[in-house]
Simulated scan of single mutants.
Amino acid sequence: MLKTNLRKPQGLLIDLDGTLYHGERRIDGADEWIASLRECGLPFLFVTNNSTAAPELVAARLERMGISASADEVVTSAQAAAAYIAEHSPGATVHIVGEAGLKLAAADAGLQLVDNGEARYVLQGLDRELDYSKLQRAVSLLLGGAEYILTNPDVLLPSDDGLLPGAGSLSALLSTASGVQPTVIGKPSRILVSYALRRIGLEAEQTWMVGDNMATDIAAGHGAGCGTALVLTGLTTLDNLPHYMEQTGMQPDGVFADLRQLNTYILSMLGT
């Protein structure tokens, strides 16, 4: 553990991929850590840039790995994006380039989903069935003045089959063709973290953002005003940490070798 500047947390926002699992493989100690948080009564939410899966499916995936989770503990970029639009334009018409999780979140937020016809917003996430006709329709709406909302800017996604194109790669197509830049909801934007803070009912200074990625998790937490705890369980390692700190122009408030070390530190701060 490196030197920390973290205050005692009243709640945690926890990244998933690279922090609790890699693909379908649980990271060592993840199940024990989440069980420990429950035992000591520290509130937390799982916060993910993934827009494709509904919270119930995300929780089920964690459960399959032996990590205790429920749907109401999951915050997705799809939910945050839908809430963002509903807050600014209740009941707005939305054309979605995305999958079931995004469509469900938009419907749950009271938005009107439009496949054909005019729409006030183009809401885009990852769409693994994207084809030319979908691109054509979205670009036409953007050129016609629709506002562009992007669930998350991830260019690549890790999978069991290697790296795959992410929502950010698809956004490059739409932005290039239309000349319209999106409002980004997911990490490193603070919008997703701010939405999660409202869900957990805490102020930023009371909360830690925990993750493995300096450019997304730590940047989003820092931008929202949360304490930031970096775990060296995924993208960031002790060797490349200086590179990522230079690249992002920031440093985490605490750096932990693994989840067990993080858990020990949290328990010591809570006096349990």
Rank of each mutant, 00 (worst) to 15 (best):
A219E: 08
N116D: 13
G271N: 15
D131Y: 14
E24G: 10
A35F: 05
L141M: 01
P55K: 06
T228D: 01
T52P: 08
V122Q: 04
G11C: 02
E24Y: 12
L163G: 04
N116G: 08
R64P: 01
D31H: 10
G271F: 05
L173R: 01
E56I: 10
A257H: 15
A219M: 13
T48R: 05
E73N: 00
L16I: 11
G29P: 01
P55G: 08
G125S: 06
G254W: 00
L143T: 11
L113Y: 02
I200R: 05
A78W: 09
T183C: 11
L267W: 00
G225T: 02
T52W: 05
L123F: 03
E73P: 04
T93R: 12
T272Q: 07
L170R: 01
T183S: 15
K3T: 14
L235V: 14
V122T: 00
S169R: 03
E73Y: 00
H22F: 13
V193H: 02
R260T: 10
R61D: 02
D131M: 15
S175D: 10
L37G: 07
D28E: 15
L235D: 03
L16A: 02
S51D: 12
E32A: 09
M269S: 09
V47M: 13
T248G: 10
L37M: 13
L143R: 14
R7T: 07
G162E: 09
G125N: 06
S171E: 07
R120M: 03
L6D: 03
A54L: 11
I67K: 10
